[in-house]
């Protein structure tokens, strides 16, 4: 999914960009709160398994023990596994898939967009046709086919998500490059004999980054949702636990043990919401024209 990133003309700045941006970001209270929440979730994903060392695959109690009773904060699932342990361990997998798919997206998207926007002509034509080709593919269906055909391992799932999601980044990067390559300071660098590579990644890219950063942040969220969707349909690696997978495998118990579906759903929801809010804050902070409002 493409998030609407509102792009504006750049105006010269007096302050150091980072300080300025942070100052703006701080004004967006919900974004700051969301950032704090994300930090907490990340902390939980990294250190949680050490602080709460229960094995998420071990059957520790009777199945379907409701949350808060008999010593299990979030209750147990259909096998009597500790849901809290599953949520903690699932956080790692869900965030990892989100991050790595986003990295893949950014890598392909920026490369394609930068080459197209910088070289223009035939290169641009070919690359944009390829981009359009991937835009036309029905994303989830195509990923489902990939995972079904080539196995539901984490790398394959990540790849299947990344390969259908990079087009938005490519388009944004390209349009930024198209705009910036004509600016005076780029002309100046070009005239002073900078290499193409240097121009692309040393001069233009840093200035094109703001919308790309915003888009990439949002990509993490949509990749988490994407993985959850695949898991819901059963296209998942049964040897790891992810939030989406908890929902998928407990789906049939929704009527009588709703918490086994609600809790991982809330985890996904809160995380993606936090990411969206941070993305909002980043957009405000990095988008110069909005600052003047």
């Amino acid at each position: 999914m493409t998030w609407p990133v509102i792009q504006e003309e750049e105006t010269p700045e007096a302050q150091h960009p980072f300080t300025e941006a942070w100052g703006m970001f701080r004004k967006n209270k919900s974004a700051v709160a969301a950032l704090g929440l994300l930090a907490l979730i990340t902390f939980g994903a990294i250190f949680g398994p050490y602080l709460y060392p229960t094995d998420p695959f071990e059957m520790v109690w009777m199945p379907f023990s409701p949350p808060g009773q008999e010593g299990f904060l979030l209750g147990t699932d259909y096998l009597g596994r500790d849901l809290l342990a599953m949520i903690i361990n699932g956080a790692k997998v869900s965030l990892m898939i989100g991050l790595s798919a986003a990295v893949m997206t950014v890598f392909i998207g920026v490369t394609v967009g930068a080459l197209a926007g910088f070289y223009r002509g035939v290169v641009e034509e070919v690359l944009m046709r390829i981009t359009e080709f991937f835009q036309v593919l029905p994303t989830l269906l195509f990923s489902m086919v990939l995972v079904a055909l080539f196995g539901a391992s984490l790398p394959m799932i990540t790849f299947a998500i990344g390969i259908v999601s990079w087009t938005a980044v490519a388009r944004i990067t390209r349009s930024e490059f198209l705009r910036i390559r004509e600016l005076e300071y780029v002309m100046a660098s070009r005239a002073s004999g900078a290499s193409n590579l240097n121009l692309m990644f040393g001069v233009i890219l840093p200035n094109a980054l703001p919308p790309i950063i915003v888009q990439s942040a949002l990509m993490v969220g949509s990749a988490i949702l994407f993985e959850a969707g695949l898991s819901f349909l059963g296209l998942t690696d049964p040897n790891v636990v992810s939030w989406g997978q908890i929902i998928g495998s407990n789906r049939q118990y929704i009527l009588d043990a709703g918490y086994t579906v609600t809790i991982p759903g809330v985890a996904i929801f809160v995380t993606v919401l936090a990411i969206s809010l941070v993305g909002d804050g980043l957009n405000d902070a990095l988008n110069p024209k909005l600052r003047q409002r």
Binding site: G229, G244, G265, V270, V272, S276
Partner: peptide, 8 residues
């Protein structure tokens, strides 16, 4: 709507 998994 955007942040919640649609099937959920």
């Amino acid at each position: 709507g955007y942040s919640a998994p649609v099937f959920w």
